[in-house]
Design a protein around this nucleic acid. Structure first.
Lengths: 147, 147
DNA sequence: TCGTTTTATATCGTTCACGATGCAAATATA
DNA sequence: TATATTTGCATCGTGAACGATATAAAACGA
């Protein structure tokens, strides 16, 4: 039996899982101040780039299922950040649009990425190496998506 | 306002979050076959390395809080994978130990890492570059842990 | 056109994550 | 030694994730 492969130290997935959770925690104080969670912030990023999208487009963009996104959007609607209304051409779709409050949050949160970004800069992760890190993560995501 | 920083494409955290979820999904069929979830598998990795640890040591090793780990361990106890008994020298501690079933799972699951590992190998992520990726993630985790 | 299949979204149940809080045992301090 | 503080674990509430399933609208095929 190959026990070395079963060491926590040798697990890529555990590193990604931990890094993801710890960065999300770094976002937490900056977002909760405005009543937002990290996945809700991701939805805002998507809608700031293009407003009025069907649920499915948002879900695909975030690599999530609609059964994750739907309740998330329902909570955001209750907070008055966005609206959900039936599509005109396709009555199955729900078109998600930002309210004024949702649009205004872009201005409010525009410094969040740089604030959090600064906290991950270290010896091996810096402006010079981040493109490599991005490429590796993008390639992995692309690879895993196709399975 | 710096809108570029608010593009999904520029977010390191989103990449980590997505990569983490997609790899975890790659583990899913291999683990659920044996009634395990990914976090439960992580607990097993920790206990296979050293059996009979207090809840706190397991939590620290996984960078999780005890309020996440406790229910997880309770579920695993109900499945007969481990036992939880009070510590002798310190009655506050709960010592977690593997049952035979828990120990036997090591043999059963020893090929899981290589099976999943193969599915992330791609152009930019390969045996040559993985040490760099590990170093970057480890540095980030170390950095974020201290905040 | 009518029945079948596909698509878009929602609902439900289970398992994390995690902040907040509670409680008992151990430790520190007066 | 009596009291205060810290430590280790548990409970509770909320919000994701996600598999399984449901439902209605659209598209397709006979």
């Amino acid at each position: 039996m190959n026990k070395a492969s079963l060491l926590l130290e040798n697990q890529l997935c555990f590193r990604l899982y931990t890094a993801s959770r710890l960065i999300t925690q770094a976002y937490h104080p900056l977002l909760s101040e405005h009543g937002l969670t990290y996945p809700q912030y991701l939805v805002l990023l998507v809608l700031w780039e293009r407003d009025a999208q069907p649920v499915n487009d948002i879900a695909k963009r975030l690599y999530l299922e609609t059964n994750t996104v739907t309740p998330l959007l329902q909570r955001m609607e209750k907070e008055g950040i966005l609206t959900r209304r039936k599509g005109k051409d396709d009555a199955r779709q729900i078109i998600v649009s930002l309210t004024k409050k949702g649009k205004d949050l872009q201005e409010t949160l525009c410094d969040v990425p740089s604030e959090v970004g600064g906290s991950v800069i270290c010896d091996s992760v810096n402006p010079e190496t981040i493109p490599d890190l991005f490429r590796m993560l993008d390639d992995m995501i692309e690879q895993l998506k196709q399975q």
